[in-house]
């Protein structure tokens, strides 16, 4: 008899979960309309990535190129009084969060890929990155070709760099950590021989600790786009228009120069 009760309870629980799955999701509302009503766009941004989105512990604010772009685009769409609300994401959490409706848009060093385009809308590319390797100064590794069997390469969960490195150096083992701060920490702890991700992010790490250098140039093309939930055509169009306007009025170039102008070894002409 007790067993029967358990069974009933289990079925009950499952059906609650299933019903929950079919409920009306916030993610399916028109985010442009919603943003105009609340005068706010909720952006998912990185807080652990120097140059793009990094927490300033003094002010408690996140700073970086992605952040400035998010604010500029918000003002472009909602007018000068429009608010950009910043929610921290990692490569690991950003897709579940936009699918769940925690955020309206992702501007977080996110590469436009065909796989992601199946489930997300992307704007035009706003930054042309490429994947590279970060190693300790004096490492025997000078490019992807030097990665041997047994070498551990550190990547970040949910980023394209993990798939790319598995293709470019199938003999190496990939360790996937939650965010870039942990990935860089793991490299310094000797958990792997290299961190692999996009050059812009790696230059940020090397700027923080010059004992680590970016080697071997880029071996992929990683165009960054702003991601929205599938079907959010109105907001996607509005953002594309906003990016065009920022390129035309010089804001875009000013921001690129502000963040990447003095990075040694970084060619700003390549990324625009």
């Amino acid at each position: 008899m007790k067993k029967l009760h358990n069974l009933i309870a289990f079925i009950g629980l499952l059906s609650v979960l299933l019903l929950a799955g079919c409920g009306k999701s916030i993610a399916s509302q028109d985010v442009l309309q919603h943003a105009k009503q609340t005068n706010t766009i909720v952006w998912g941004v990185k807080a652990d990535t120097r140059l793009f989105g990094l927490m300033n512990t003094k002010s408690g604010k996140i700073e970086g190129f992605d952040i400035d772009m998010a604010k500029a685009i918000t003002k472009q769409i909602l007018g000068p009084k429009g608010k950009a609300e910043l929610v921290q994401v990692t490569s690991d959490t950003r897709v579940p969060m936009i699918k769940g409706g925690n955020i309206d848009a992702i501007i977080a060093t996110m590469t436009i890929t065909p796989d992601r385009q199946k489930v997300l809308n992307f704007t035009q590319s706003y930054f042309a990155a490429g994947q590279s390797l970060l190693v300790k100064k004096g490492s025997r590794i000078h490019s992807v070709k030097d990665l041997k069997k047994g070498d551990k390469v550190i990547g970040v969960q949910g980023s394209t760099s993990v798939d790319n490195i598995q293709k470019a150096a199938p003999q190496a083992t990939v360790l996937q950590l939650s965010d870039y701060a942990q990935a860089f920490t793991a490299l310094k702890s000797g958990q792997g021989v290299a961190v692999t991700t996009d050059n812009g992010i790696l230059y940020g790490m090397s700027e923080q600790d010059p004992n680590y250098v970016v080697v071997g140039g880029t071996f992929t093309k990683e165009p960054y786009g702003i991601a929205l939930n599938k079907g959010q055509t109105n907001m996607t169009n509005a953002m594309n228009k906003a990016i065009n306007a920022l390129r035309k009025n010089g804001t875009y170039e000013k921001l690129i120069n502000k963040w990447f102008g003095d990075i040694p070894g970084f060619d700003i002409k390549e990324v625009e």
Partner: peptide, 14 residues
């Protein structure tokens, strides 16, 4: 809680 609740219309900050 963080990733699935929004599916039933509950968007909770962290």
């Amino acid at each position: 809680t963080y990733f699935a609740l929004p599916n039933i219309g509950l968007r909770l900050p962290v």
